[in-house]
Amino acid sequence: MSQQIWDWNYAFAILPLLLEGLGLTLVATVLGSIVAMVLGLVLAVLQRGPRPLAVVVRGFVELVRSTPLLVQIFFLYFVLPQFGIVLSALTVGVIALGVHYACYTSEVYRAGIDAVPRGQWEAATALSLPRSRVWTGVVLPQAVPRVVPALGNYVISMFKEVPLLTAIGLLDVVGRAQEAGDTYFRYVEPYTIAGLLFLLLSYPASLLVRRLERRVGTI
């Protein structure tokens, strides 16, 4: 291969593989986000629950937030098989991303829940609404719309952290770039394209989130 810095033929040749990897990156992001949104809400509500449980959940959230996602990925990847649980790299990745980000989204939900005025809880109590209905009918419908932009930001962050899963062999866009680079000993094109692909998706997405923020306000 020629010694030029940028080889267009090579760049186009590896593009399909990189796009395939990007597809897997997006799949991991979407699935991870679903876990993070649902589990985050559960963690937020539990922290409003009975005291011993709330303290345990709080401790878990703090631990996960204070330690690297990469280590948590390795943790699941190496430790789960010890208990006889063998999962694919994608599944491990989705669980790790989902749980890690759930600890962040739970804080967002908590802020949203705290922003619901106390009078709303009291009015619901005065009407004898059951506890579950107070959450689903009164508090969450007011709290969740306000936190959508913040949740959106975490989805974008998660998207950019999917490449950590190359560490356990997931062939996401960076995994594919690495593969191409190692095969042809040319790294400039694959990593540059990978970076541009991230920028191409995450920059417009973050502009969208900023517009949403202006619309609904931030917590």
Binding site: I5, K160, E161, V162, P163, L164, T166, V174, A177, Q178, G181, R186, Y187, V188, Y191, T192, A194, G195, L196, F198, L199, S202, Y203, S206
Partner: peptide, 20 residues
């Protein structure tokens, strides 16, 4: 820098930059 992945930046600096 906020729009690209940190891992990509790392690989780029370690594997692409030396070539450049």
């Amino acid at each position: 820098l906020r729009g690209t992945s940190e891992v990509v930046q790392l690989f780029w600096i370690f594997f692409a930059l030396p070539v450049l």
